[in-house]
Structures are given as structure tokens and as C-alpha cells.
């Protein structure tokens, strides 16, 4: 078991919590009902990445994905 194994599990629980509860609150506060340009969504994508590649690599992959979610990035 790697050192980051507990980290991995905790992060996945947090992402689940975000997807089920916090994202609704966030959308209410920001006044926008959906803002994902990518499919799967960043949270889902990051969750899969962390599940498959471990905490460090998965979190990095997810972070890069979120950074692409702005007008300067042209890809899909």
C-alpha cells in the first residue's frame, strides 16, 4: 500500500460529496445551472484519474483539466 492510499480514499469521498451536494450549492451561489464544457465533467474525470492512477498523479491530471476550462483553451 502506498503512502498516499488514505489520501486517495479521502479525496474520492470529498469528490463524491462535492458532486452530490456541494455542486448544487455552488451553482445556486453562482447563478448558473451548468457550466461544464467537457464531458465527463472535471469532477468525474478527476475521480476516475485518482482511482486509476493514485492520488498524486490523478490530482495533477484533474488540476490540469480544470485549468483548461476557460476561453483561452480551444480544444474539447
Amino acid at each position: 500500500m502506498s503512502v498516499t492510499e488514505p489520501m486517495r480514499k479521502i479525496t474520492i469521498i470529498f469528490i463524491d460529496l462535492y458532486q452530490r451536494v456541494l455542486s448544487y450549492f455552488l451553482k445556486n451561489i453562482l447563478g448558473v445551472s451548468s457550466f461544464c464544457r467537457f464531458r465527463p465533467t472535471c469532477s468525474e474525470y478527476t475521480k476516475t484519474a485518482i482511482k486509476e492512477k493514485g492520488f498524486m498523479k490523478g490530482a495533477y491530471i484533474g488540476f490540469v483539466r480544470i485549468l483548461k476550462c476557460q476561453p483561452l483553451y480551444k480544444g474539447v
Partner: peptide
């Protein structure tokens, strides 16, 4: 056109 993405919206936070 989902070209803008979420970061502009999150700027509000």
C-alpha cells in the same frame, strides 16, 4: 458554445 468554460463564472467567488 461552451467555449468560455467555468473559470470566468468562478471569478465571481
Amino acid at each position: 458554445n461552451p467555449i468560455s468554460g467555468c473559470l470566468p463564472v468562478i471569478l465571481q467567488l
